[in-house]
């Protein structure tokens, strides 16, 4: 059994003439936390969308948990065990916290097809568990998302991933819009995942955060991967990473990407 949880080979996405993602070869090992960095428009979110079934790739392979996969929808990816916090949070503003956590996979008491009876009590209880597991503080889970702060919304979106047993968690810029304290809360959730041995792909622009949290940094530039930096075991500074992001440097093995 290999210790690789996710691998992409030559993963490519073109939007008409826009080559948003070009030949991405990427590997994530079990228990590993990897950050994806890169300028705006570098193709980071596009990469995530190809893995999670939000869009269909132009070409390339995605191998998840040892098997090649072709997710038709985010739900497929979810069922296979990939939980994603998308950059545009997929939350329904008018619904409360348990409703959002279980959106699309509600717990039911009687199965009557579309008219299945909801099990509110069970969903509330599991919501509390998920919030406790992630250390998220929300004053009242019966509040609608509309009435929550940016940080609380982000935490709900993240708690959603923690509600279900997943094999891989992906977070696309989870702290971009948050204040200091809210950011710290999200970072704690990431640490909980690390302690639990759950692998993570974290997209972030925050250098301090990346150096604090992850094992490895993969840099995207103009739709291509241009560096793979083992920051845990080798000496890299923030300036090194910036150099790769801006294009001042490219790793030899990614030369053709430049």
């Amino acid at each position: 059994m290999s210790d690789i949880i996710l691998e992409t080979r030559d993963l490519t996405k073109h939007y008409g003439g826009v080559h948003a993602l070009q030949g991405a070869n990427f590997i994530l090992r079990k228990g590993e936390h990897v950050a994806i960095m890169g300028d705006n428009g570098a193709g980071k979110s596009t990469f995530v969308r190809q893995i999670t079934g939000v869009e269909q790739r132009t070409r390339g392979e995605v191998i998840f948990d040892g098997k090649p996969v072709h997710f038709e929808s985010p739900m497929d990816a979810r069922e296979a065990g990939i939980e994603t916090v998308f950059q545009t949070l997929a939350l329904a503003d008018e619904l409360d916290v348990p409703d959002n956590l279980f959106l699309g996979r509600e717990l039911v008491r009687f199965n009557l097809g579309p008219f299945s009876i909801l099990d509110y009590k069970a969903m509330r209880e599991r919501t509390m568990q998920a919030l406790e597991k992630t250390g998220v503080k929300i004053p009242n889970i019966r509040n609608t998302i509309r009435n929550m702060s940016g940080g609380q919304r982000q935490c709900v979106a993240i708690a959603r991933t923690a509600t279900f047993h997943s094999k891989l968690t992906i977070m696309d810029e989870p702290t971009a819009a948050l204040g200091v304290q809210e950011t710290a809360q999200v970072e704690n959730i990431v640490r909980t995942l690390k302690a639990a041995g759950e692998p993570l792909i974290l997209i972030s622009h925050n250098m301090r955060q990346v150096f604090d949290l992850v094992d490895r940094v993969v840099v995207f530039r103009r739709g291509r991967i241009c560096a793979n930096l083992d920051i845990k075991n080798q000496e890299f500074s923030g300036e090194d990473v910036v150099a790769y992001i801006t294009g001042a440097k490219t790793q030899p093995e990614y030369e053709d990407a430049a």
Partner: peptide
């Protein structure tokens, strides 16, 4: 629940697998 979710945020509903 799905009726409310779709009216509230159709993209989110779709992303959630509805």
């Amino acid at each position: 629940k799905h009726t409310y979710a779709i009216g509230s945020n159709e993209d989110a509903a779709r992303m959630s697998g509805i």
